[in-house]
Design a binder for these strands. Sequence first.
RNA 1: GGGCGUGUAGCUCAGUUGGUUAGAGCGCAUCCCUGAUAAGGAUGAGGUCCCUGGUUCGAGUCCAGGCACGCCCA
Length: 1144
Amino acid sequence: MNSPKKAFQDVQPQVSFPKLEQRILQFWKEQGIYDKSLQRRRDAPRFVFYEGPPTANGLPHPGHCLTRAIKDLFPRYRTMRGYRCERKAGWDTHGLPVEVEVCKELGIHSKAEIEAYGVERFIHRCLESVFRYTREWEYLTERIGFWIHLEEAYVTYHQSYVESIWWCLKTLFDRGLLYHGHKIVWWWPQGGTALSAGEVGQGYRTVDDPSVYVRMPLLNEEGQETDTDLLIWTTTPWTLPSNQFVAVDPELEYARVWDAQRGRHLVVARVLVEPLAQKFSRTWEVRETFPGRRLVGRRYRPPFDFYYRQQGSRRGRLRQGGEEYWGWRVVEADFVTTDSGTGLVHQAPAFGEVDFDVLRREQARFEPGQGPPLLCAVAPDGTFTAEAPPYQGQFVKDADRQIMADLKRRGLLFHRETYQHEYPFCWRAEQDPLIQYPRKSWFIRTSQLKELMLENNRHIAWLPEHIRDGRFGNFLESNVDWALSRERYWGTPLPIWQCEATGRFEAVASYQELLAKPGVQGTEVWQRAKEQNPQLPEHLKVHKPYIDAVTYDSPFQPGARMRRVPEVIDVWFDSGAMPFAQWGYPHRGQERFREQFPADFISEAIDQTRGWFYSLLAISTLLFGTEPQPGEQGTFRQEFPHPYRNCVVLGLMLGEDGHKMSKQRRNYREPQEIFDRYGADAMRWYFFANQAPWTSIRYSEQAIRDSIPEFLLRLWNVYNFFVTYANIDGFDPAARIPAADAGDLSRQVLAGGEGYRPHPQRGELDRWILSELDRTAQLVVQHMDRYENYPAARLLHQFVDALSNWYVRRSRSRFWASGLCEDKLDAYWTLYECLVTTCKLVAPFVPFLAEELWQNLARSPFGQRVLESVHLADYPTGEPSRYDEELSRRMGLVREIVSLGRSARTAQKLKVRQPLPQVEIVLADRRDQPWLEQHAELIAEELNVKQVHFARQADQYIQYTVLPNLPRLGPRLGKRIPLLKKALQEADPAALLRRLESEGQVELELADGPLALTRDDLQVRLQAKEGWAAAQGPGAVVVLNTQLTPELVQEGLARDLVRAIQEERRRRGCQYTDRIRLVLFTPEEALQQAAQAFAQYIQGETLAVELAVQGQQPPEGEQVGRYKLGSAQVGVQLEVVRSSGSPA
RNA sequence: GGGCGUGUAGCUCAGUUGGUUAGAGCGCAUCCCUGAUAAGGAUGAGGUCCCUGGUUCGAGUCCAGGCACGCCCA
């Protein structure tokens, strides 16, 4: 054999994917491939992606690997599909996560301590902390192959970002959508600030709280205690001192029961009498039942008299005339349930939103100034005030014990137990419980836009779909105004200035606008700080404390000054504003914003339902959901949906053990370890190909490792196989292709290659795999266009499997033929086209492996004439016309027959090396027979039989059953189906089939009349009779003839010998092309004869130029390999006569 | 307590508009191949499709109720 030029670089069979990936990363970086991929789509339509900004002051964990992998997949795919998809990174830099981190470093906790440390110094520390783990984040991003412009990232504390938000808030303020209100908020006492629903939602924990039943004696008309008590239930004893009402359901039936043990009457809901009595181990006697309405208006004595002493008998004038007591009476409410508690609900309006509404409603009944005030014995720091002297200074939760003890001592504590429930804690300072608390706070009137948000939501394509009307839709339905302000330090300052004289507010849209105000003062505070420390970034001047110093003349009253309100805003507002704020819109970046709005695609984990998904939608709807007001800057009305059209909601990532990942539990591997051991492609493929992305995904090292043999290595082996033989044969796809620009090696380009024949001229196997290739490409594109990575990945997996386990397996012998004959060239071109196309198809999924393949398959032979990277290529879309469904079905049948044959062999313990005389094939549908006969050779080879016979008369080994083809007949016959089944059971199936075959149709007599049936109306099931080496499937029965002749036995032995010799070749390190001289040693006569009879076959298979057989035991020594064939010993001695590559 | 989701082989999961013998991978067992070779492949065992009821000629699939688990929220 001559030594032709190699078109491809030889492939190392023992591939290390992590090392390969490092090389590819280097290549991408050095050649700027990502930028080139954008450049190439410069004028293409846009595909807009938004990056949800991570917080870089915490370490990335495996969950982020999934989001980053998905965020890479679709932009990469869309780029290959011909879109321009810019990917701008972003960082979330504000808010509690940062402040809490810094407090931990400083060893402080409370706001007082921060103030003592100094707000300015504190802010500087925050700034330093923000990018603490940037390097880790950037490493992860790059290593997993997430292409994104990190160097152009938007940063939420930057001045332009902040000013965008100011513009947004000013717009909302001017529209009356941003207001200062008094409400019950979720309050973080230690942190001294309110939190948003999103933040609260992140901090729920299961805790044991006290659960107390307290009695409150009813009063009579004169205000004296009666012998009847209201029984209420609460898990927050600390709210009892601030009790103002008891609520009942007016329609619900209540009972007055006699408690003999106490000698008093109690009032509880009628349906709760038994369960409560049981809980308290009492016997209660129901004395009276009545609707709740009868209790309304009755007064009671509260458990504490801190307020009651002063106000217990206070009354006010009602709007509708008459007077009413301020409080401590029964009111009606629609939220009372009998699911828990007693059916009577303690109301402390200061510490509950619904309670507060009750107070509001009661206040509204009184004439102005006549109604009850809000009672609140708790200070903002969560401690009791002087209004509850015994507990003054105690933190509310800590005071629970003493409160319960006091109640017990006074005989008011009816029952006490522990109650396990979910309770919110601060999402960053996890030891701090939150409480509901009345507070003046800034709100966005989102509830006013609820319908619009719902409408907007209806246009979003959610994956999975149920998020739209389920979790997200429900959340929108229950929308409450957004508690925007935070009484904290490191955040976007609320751009509102207040007149010190009139208290009126004004919003400011930019720093420049602020500087342009009349009589501006205070900017020197920033100037001085900057002079002192020139390193300070300019961005800080729009932050606390510098911005607080800036004041100006009030437009509301001459001589008065405008001062900024002290609050910063909810950090979730920052990220929700990114569609415009990332460009600094509208102060700058107008064009960029218009191009990149709305997004086609975003993706985050499901916990963002109330987080980013909501903040994006809410802000966008507020700004761009309605016609702009006259005189507004930058707003316009955008058609729904915005700001995102498609949202892939990712499931929760679980640890190895199926539980939440946790550092303490050590139930997951660090991403770094996975990258080093298995590589990013393995991880990506595991994420994409093993489950729908919205199911919870188990982050399992084993499962990630498995994607290597299951997919990556399988593809690699096919590639390796191809390159090995292509190099041996000197196959060069570039040889005759004249085009200076071969582009991405489309089919049209390949068609110009040397020896390339059009597909229809090629053999069936080639046409089959090419048809599968087109089908796969088509379906993959269909799924990927709908963001369905999982079915797409499965299709790719199936194709690679078919390529490896059927096409290559069946084609191997074609590659072994000598010289480059037409059939061999067909095989090369077919496999080459499959590999090049697969490489493009898998590129968005496993970008590293795809690139490696491309570099060798395309770049090695074509050099500069093809695209530099697979990621610059166009994604193959397949052509429907090239999918040959019939061929696919038939090949399936061939594979079924082969599989059945093997099954029959296994059942008989007949190894494939032993040739058999004949196989008998019985088809369920004989129409396939003519076509299958052409494949007899293939079947014979796979099953190692001498003859393939298609049985016409197979009654001797087959039993037929004829069944209705239900999908066809069901709709037509409906209720007649059972009758047909009965008729078929009674008919003679063989005769029926014969009639069908001769006449094309058959008439059956059913119980209610005749029925004409064609062949397609019926399905034939075959069953092998006992006593045959047979296996049955839906399409065929395969029967083996197991009679062995001496010749067949000899041939089997010869194949055993070949196997031993090949093993020896391998042991001795022979090249595939090495010729050998061969000596076999065996005293076994049968083997000697077999070797002689099949000498030519053996020599051909093993490239032996000489074969000698010695009838003696093999001699000792390293030069002779010893093998056991059945019971016989064989020695194999070989000597290489000449090496490949060296001249003959 | 409410909302949403999930429940299919030992494990991880598929399962189209209802259709006859419910699939895949891993693991396990038995075996094959040895010119892809530190690979590859075949065959097999393994199922009350969570339970109950309903609709239907026919239900893993549709409906109702229940149970278990998860997430989100009260």
